[in-house]
Simulated scan of single mutants.
Amino acid sequence: MKIKVGISSCLLGNEVRFDGGHKHSRLCTDSLSRYFEFVPECPEVASGMSIPRKPIRLIGEVQAPKVVAVHDNSVDYTDQLKTYSEHKAQQLDELCGYVFMQKSPSCGVFRVKVYQEGGYPAAEPGRGVYAKAVMEAKPLLPVEESGRLEDAVLRESFITRVYAYHNWQQLKKQGLSYQGILEFHASYKYCLMARTPTHYVELGRLLADAGKHDIDDLAEHYFSLLMENLSVLATRKTHTNVLMHLQGYLKKVLSAKEKLELGNLIEQYRTNQVPLIVPITLLKHHFNNHPDPYIEKQAYLQPYPDDLSLRNAI
C-alpha cells in the first residue's frame, strides 16, 4: 500500500505555473512515487487563477502578507487564495506528508520573500499562503520543499518522519491502547536516540505514568513530542551512539574477529570514511544470524524501504 503524500502539482510535471510551465521533480516521480501516492494540488489554479497568469508575490506584513500581482499591486488575490487554502487544509486527513514547491508565494515553506515599500524583501522570510494554512491545520504533518529534498540528510529525515507518521496513523486505526503506545515507543527507541537522546528519556518518563492519563490525551502529547524529536537532524555522532548500542546486543554471540570487523566499520562511519549503510548492513547480517526479539522490532534498522537507498549518502 502506497502512502498518501501531498505535493505541489507543478512538481509532478503538470503545467500549472504562472507561465504555463512546470517544475518537474524527477526525485519525486522516479524514486519516491514507488512508495508514495502523490496527491497534487495547485492552490493558485484551484482558487481561480488562470493558466497562464500574471506572476504574484507577497507584500506587507510578514506574518499576514497580501497576495498581489507583481506588476500591479492593486490586483489583489489575498482573499481568494487564503479562503481556498484554509478550506483545503481541513481536508487533508489522509496525508502523511507534504512536498511543497520552494520560494512560491503560495507553496513555499522557507525563505519566501515578502516585499516591502521600496521593492525590497523583508529581512525576515515569509511562508506561502497555502503552505502556511496546511502547516497550521496539520502542525505535526511532515513537510519539506522539493529543492531541500536534494540534500541527502534532509531527504532521509523527511522520509523517516513520513513513515513514522504513517505507522502512527495505522496504530490509531487499529484502536489506541496503553500497551500499543508503549510498544510503538519501544520500536522507535533507536530512531529517537539517533536524534536527541534526552528527548527519548523525556518520552519514556511520560509513558512511565501512562495509566494515569486519559488515553487520547496521552496519545496526542506523546505523538507531538515524537514528531518534534524526529524533526531534529541526526548526526554521525548520534548515529554512532546508536550503532554502538546495537553492537552491544551482539557481544556474547560474535567471535573476536567479527567484533573487531564491526567495531572498525562503526569507527569508519564515525570518521566519515563510509556511509551509514555499511555498518547498518553488517549489523542486519549479524542479527539475521543471531536474532534478538527486541531488535527485530526496532524501526531504526529499517525505517523505510531499503531500495530508497537513503543511507547510502549519509
Score class of each variant (00 low, 15 high):
K54P: 05
K54D: 07
K54C: 11
K54L: 10
P55H: 00
I56T: 12
I56H: 00
R57H: 10
R57P: 04
R57L: 09
I59K: 08
G60R: 10
G60E: 03
G60F: 00
G60A: 06
E61I: 10
E61V: 08
E61F: 03
V62T: 05
V62W: 11
V62Y: 12
Q63H: 11
Q63D: 14
A64E: 08
P65G: 14
P65N: 11
K66F: 03
V67K: 05
V67R: 07
V68T: 08
V70F: 05
V70D: 10
V70M: 14
D72M: 02
N73C: 15
N73A: 15
N73F: 14
S74V: 01
S74P: 02
V75R: 15
V75P: 12
V75S: 15
D76E: 10
D76K: 06
D76Y: 03
D76I: 08
T78Q: 03
T78Y: 00
D79G: 06
Q80A: 15
Q80P: 02
Q80K: 14
L81P: 05
L81H: 06
K82N: 12
K82M: 08
K82F: 09
K82D: 07
T83A: 14
Y84K: 07
Y84M: 11
Y84V: 11
Y84W: 13
S85H: 15
E86K: 12
E86G: 01
E86M: 13
E86C: 12
H87P: 06
H87V: 11
K88W: 10
K88M: 09
K88Q: 10
K88T: 08
A89I: 01
Q90K: 13
Q90L: 13
Q90A: 04
Q91T: 15
Q91E: 05
